[in-house]
């Protein structure tokens, strides 16, 4: 597996382009010959973390790194930060606005979906400063 590192920018509240970075990552992983099951898991992780930035974050930076045995996705934003990280991982808990819920977001499944589809997840969040989510998926 070729080693690769690529960085993308995710704009907050840009619902028109939301998901495009994840689709690019999906295509890239497929073209690198990553197995379909791993691509599917990485796609879920990428999309949920991309949407977290679009809905709740500030300016976001998305980094994909692929090496011999691991995919790493780092999604960082300079948004308001997460108040209670443990609560944010609880399935069904959401701080989505009514507007977001009307269009099918805010199921409280974003971070739980990432947890289920990754091998390791690290969250660093500071109130008023932003959030960094680092997701690891083993390739083999």
């Amino acid at each position: 597996m070729a080693e690769l590192e690529k960085t993308y920018t995710v704009k907050p509240r840009d619902f028109i382009r939301a998901g495009e970075v994840s689709i690019q990552i999906q295509s890239l992983l497929k073209s690198m010959g990553v197995t379909p099951d791993i691509v599917r898991r990485a796609s879920v992780c990428a999309y949920e973390s991309e949407m977290n930035i679009v809905m709740y974050g500030g300016e976001g930076t998305f980094t994909l790194r692929v090496d011999q045995d691991m995919i790493m996705i780092r999604a960082c934003d300079d948004g308001p930060g997460i108040d209670d990280i443990e609560l944010a991982f609880q399935e069904g808990y959401s701080t989505a606005t009514p507007e977001y819920r009307e269009i099918g977001f805010g199921a409280g499944m974003g971070l739980p979906n990432i947890k289920k589809n990754s091998d390791e997840i690290q969250v660093e969040s500071h109130k008023g400063e932003g959030t960094c989510l680092v997701i690891y998926i083993k390739i083999n």
Binding site: F15, I16, A18, G19, E20, S22, I23, Q26, R40, S43, V44, A46, Y47, I103, G104
Partner: peptide, 17 residues
Amino acid sequence: LTIQGHQNIVAVAVLKE
């Protein structure tokens, strides 16, 4: 099958094949 007609459904569909 969904009632959601906004553009984000397409990204979900692509990512979930």
